[in-house]
Nucleic acid binder design. Structure first.
Length: 660
RNA sequence: GCUGCCGUAGCUCAGGGGUAGAGCACUCCCUUGGUAAGGGAGAGGUCGGAAGUUCAAAUCUUCUCGGCAGCACCA
């Protein structure tokens, strides 16, 4: 090793295979790739230097472990997507001068970039922008990293009219190095790293949609115009992604709900569901299943009022913290006088309940409770109304009239852990039964707008954390996401196509028992405050049914399917036998329909398959003679001919509601 | 609520300043046929609503209601 004065020290780079390459002095990723081979040079996108991703052009000055990143690496997607966002921004600014850039992060499957422009972009602009992007990629502009002085950067962006960028830089912490990436004539503030040139991006991208988005995600700020895009390593991946979107659209519960005749919505009852016989059958199955599980877990079911006086909601704290989401009803006989207002301005106000909890406290408060009575678990399929913003409504997933599988556990502080653990067990067992074995847990802590003192919040947050630790459940934190009266656990389940949904919740509340003065008599003979656990497994039945429809793509398990079996005849000669089959199945409590129509069997099979009926039993000459049926299961082209008695037993066993 | 797009028969969609179209579904007739659409005939909308421009509006303009996507909010 020569260390002659004036000469730089050599740099040893160790490759992933363990081999080491030595260079005379600082060396870039490009040089290294070139040194290894021309194929790699062409494929190289960036380089890991001691685990950190660097630009290829950035000199490596000391001995390091390195690995060159190519499109084959999963991690390359992040790089490609972010570069794609930059190329899009360059294209936009080239096409629409005066448009300001703001932020453009990666998201799942792609990226977006928010622009500030007087006139928002429309879908028609996307095609033009995409074309320009291909042009920029064709120009193969070198992408160069530059380190700038913070104040110079702010001045520069202000000077060129990029006020949002200037604001972003001004808000960066002092410790942050300000880096700017230049590609051709265009440059943008960015942490990097980036590809060596725009040409490396390829053509596996597509601009998807435009949308409004508030600056910094705050509805008080001005609205920017956002463009969403997707970007992949190659065309094949892009195509697969677009296919995945199509498949997801086929599962849309609004579409399936119509096709399967489960429910409908109409504008006179925005956000409230009209359940049809088929859909309500599924609802009742699910509700009864939960009812059984709760009963087995020591809950008592109750029913509480829809309309309660505003004074009551003032006391509970909802009037102050939740009123903008509540439906208010005047407690007054509406005037029928012509010209007169229907209700007077000073009418006494009632409100439709947005939550069940305060009403459950009222039931708890009837009579004197001893510490020996606790825990008391009140369950209610409570129908609640919330005045959700119009833009938030979405099929069954976001409604204004909702039915929760709600319950409140009143217990002593020393029972919090065991009750929480028991709830977690119940929830995971129910999710398993319903076909959702995977879920994640978040601990949502105190929000800005809240009731109760910090001391109470400290205790509540710690209580939930302890319960999770005792139950041995892994979790993450969701800071500031708690309810206004207490912290909560959020249970997020994963569906068949990898989406997650928050359904279950467990909320610890020291505030409401205090506000509504709930007490029990302790061992010491004096009054104590119970702790209240608010909890739901499904969340709301409406939304959970929506999730299940999409999860199963309409092909519900037999016990939930609205119509479990269709008996279809080959010709009218077998009508009587078909009716006998139906009778035997119905005698076992199965939901059966008979199809005696003057149609060919092909037609009948096709129609009932589209309607997602799990089992079609075909009867003709052969079956009638042998007292058999031909069984066709949804999703299978095979048929088996089985004795009638056998299939009745088999199906009625299979259709049993799970028992945990 | 905010931004953009959309609003034609039960569903999916075409059309586009001169008195509404297709496929499926529906009704009737023929057909009685073995596992994802047999054939024929018929009925059904005044084009989300209101106002305006015009000799004439579903078609253009404005307002309004609703839907969709995203944002914000959220179960």
């Amino acid at each position: 090793m020569s260390d002659t004065a004036g000469n730089p020290s050599p740099v040893n780079l160790r490759l992933p295979d363990g081999s080491v390459r030595t260079f005379d002095g600082p060396v870039t990723g490009t040089t290294l790739a070139e040194d290894i081979g021309p194929g790699l040079l062409k494929a190289a996108l960036a380089i890991y230097v001691d685990g950190e991703l660097w630009d290829l052009s950035r000199p490596i000055e000391k001995d390091s472990d390195v690995a060159i990143l190519t499109k084959k690496d999963e991690a390359a997607l992040d790089l490609l997507r972010h570069d794609c966002a930059h190329v899009m921004a360059e294209a936009v600014q080239e096409l629409f001068p005066g448009t300001q850039v703001t932020i453009g992060p990666n998201i799942e499957d792609g990226f977006f970039y928010d622009f500030a422009r007087d006139k928002p972009f429309t879908e028609d602009d996307l095609e033009v922008i995409e074309k320009k992007m291909h042009e920029i990629i064709g120009r193969d502009e070198a992408i160069e990293r530059e380190v700038w002085d913070r104040n110079e950067a702010i001045d520069y962006f202000k000077k060129i009219g990029e006020h949002y960028k200037a604001e972003i830089i001004a808000d960066l912490p002092d410790t942050e190095t300000i880096t700017v990436y230049r590609q051709g004539e265009w440059l943008d503030l960015c942490r990097g790293p980036h590809l060596p040139s725009t040409g490396k991006l390829g053509d596996a991208f597509k601009l998807m949609k435009v949308a409004g988005a508030y600056w910094r995600g705050d509805s008080k700020n001005e609205m920017l115009t956002r463009i969403y895009g997707t970007c992949w390593a190659d065309k094949k991946q892009l195509k697969a992604y677009l296919h995945r979107l199509e498949e997801a659209a086929k599962r849309d519960h609004r579409k399936l709900g119509r096709e399967m005749d489960l429910f409908h919505l109409q504008e006179e009852a925005q956000g409230s569901v009209f359940w049809h016989p088929q859909g309500y059958t599924v609802w009742l199955q699910l509700e009864n299943y939960i009812r059984n599980r709760l009963k087995d877990a020591g809950y008592q079911e109750i029913k509480t009022p829809q309309l309660l006086d505003s004074k009551f909601w003032e006391q509970s704290g909802h009037w102050e913290k939740f009123r903008e989401n509540m439906f208010v009803v005047p407690d007054e006989v509406p005037s029928t006088d012509e010209g007169a207002p229907i209700v007077s301005a000073d009418a006494r106000l009632m409100a439709l309940k947005p939550m069940n909890c305060p009403a459950h406290v009222q039931v708890f408060k009837q009579g004197i409770k001893s510490y020996r009575d606790l825990p008391i678990r009140f369950a209610e399929f409570g129908c609640c109304h919330r005045n959700e913003a119009h833009g938030a409504l979405h099929g069954l997933m976001r409604v204004r009239q909702m039915t929760q599988d709600d319950a409140h556990i009143f217990c002593r502080e020393d029972q919090i852990t065991s009750e929480s653990v028991a709830f977690c067990d119940l929830l995971s067992s129910i999710y398993r039964d319903l076909g959702f074995p995977d879920f994640k847990v978040l601990l949502a802590t105190r929000p800005d707008v809240r009731a109760g003192t910090d001391e109470v919040w400290d205790r509540a947050e710690k209580g939930l954390e302890e319960a999770l630790n005792t139950a041995g459940i892994e979790f993450d934190y969701a800071p500031g996401e708690g309810a206004f009266y207490g912290p909560k656990l959020e249970f997020h389940l994963s569906d068949a196509i990898g989406r997650t949904w928050q359904c279950g919740t467990l909320q610890l509340d020291f505030v409401l028992p205090e506000r509504l003065d709930a007490t029990y008599i302790g061992e010491d003979g004096s009054k104590h405050r119970p702790v209240m656990l608010h909890r739901a497994v499904l969340g709301t039945l409406e939304r959970f049914l929506g999730i299940m429809i999409e999860h199963y793509a309409g092909r519900l398990p037999l016990w939930l399917a609205p119509t479990q079996v269709v008996v279809a005849t080959i010709t009218q000669s077998f009508d009587a036998y078909a009716q006998k089959v139906v009778d035997q199945l119905e005698a076992k409590g199965m939901r059966v329909k008979i199809d005696l129509r003057n149609e060919k069997i092909n037609y009948k099979v096709r129609e009932h398959s589209h309607a997602k009926v799990p089992v079609i039993l075909v009867v003709g000459q052969r079956e009638m003679e042998q007292n058999q049926v031909s069984v066709r299961r949804l999703g299978s082209k095979d048929q088996t001919v089985v004795d009638l008695d056998t299939i009745v037993t088999e199906l009625s066993t299979e259709a049993k509601m799970p028992q945990g």
